[in-house]
């Protein structure tokens, strides 16, 4: 028996919205400790990793580990039928399920919707990501990071991110010209202005803005985002989801030919 009930179903809707442009189908692994998912985009440039802890669910039960292979597009179609204030319950009682049941219930418990989503058998292409001590970690407003990426993507396809002890600089160079946005360390009380820089070693890395813009679809999951970088390593962009877990995106850098 597997059953997971989310009090704030809207979080699940937002997670699926955030990844649906990046990945088409995923294996969700359910275990006693919670749900996890890892998937690469079709070009194998980026990777998304989701971890939801059992403690963050209103009810959670998973008697034995199961893998749920599903189409994100089809999942998204079903989740459109859930209201933003609804609870969402995922359920299956089969050992090797061919479908996953969904229950959506509104706050007054006056409306209950029930759906079943056909599951797929997908090759598992899980990558081992070691725990990494990143040499530059930036925590800032997710909305502000999203804005910077969006603005710069009209000038260039790539952005160079350069950190120093005091600031992080986002630079672009395109056909029409060049520019940069520098964000300084700022210990403001307001989330929107706050910028935390933990720089052990400065880094200078270049990334495709198209992917960063896709990651930023997760902006509504968390008011802050953390950018984790080490020289010659993928960027890890993390959105923490309150008590529930985290959504991480990894992006391979671009290198000079």
């Amino acid at each position: 028996m597997f059953e997971a009930k989310l009090q704030q179903g809207v979080i699940f809707k937002k997670i699926v919205d955030a990844i649906k442009d990046l990945v088409k189908s995923v294996n969700i692994d359910a275990s006693t400790s919670g749900l996890s998912m890892q998937a690469m985009d079709s070009a194998h440039v980026a990777l998304v990793s989701l971890k939801l802890n059992e403690n963050g669910f209103k009810d959670y039960r998973c008697d034995r580990p199961i893998t749920l292979g599903l189409s994100i597009e089809n999942l998204s179609k079903i989740l459109k039928c859930a209201g933003n204030d609804d609870t969402i319950t995922l359920q299956t009682d089969e050992e090797e399920p061919s479908s996953l049941k969904f229950f959506f219930e509104n706050q007054q418990a006056s409306k209950i919707s029930e759906f079943s989503l056909n599951l797929m058998s997908l090759d598992s292409e899980s990558l081992g990501i070691p725990d990494t001590d990143y040499s530059s970690v930036i925590q800032m407003s997710s909305a502000e990071f999203s804005r910077i990426c969006k603005e710069l993507s009209s000038i260039s396809e790539t952005v160079e991110i350069e950190t120093s002890k005091e600031s992080v600089k986002f630079s672009v160079q395109g056909d029409i010209g060049a520019g940069s946005i520098t964000v300084k360390n700022n210990q403001s009380d307001k989330d929107v202005d706050r910028v935390d820089l933990q720089i052990d070693q400065p880094v200078k890395l270049t990334f495709a803005l198209r992917y960063l813009n896709m990651f930023n679809k997760a902006v509504s999951l968390s008011s802050t985002v953390s950018l984790n970088m080490s020289e010659e390593n993928p960027l890890m962009v993390e959105y923490k989801i309150d008590d529930l877990g985290s959504l991480r995106f990894y992006l391979a850098p671009k290198i000079s030919d």
């Binding site: 292409e125 899980s126 990558l127 391979a252 671009k254 290198i255 000079s256």
Partner: peptide
Amino acid sequence: LRSQLHIENYYRLE
């Protein structure tokens, strides 16, 4: 010119 690397260049398949 810059080349886009693949994520598998960094993390191994499990």
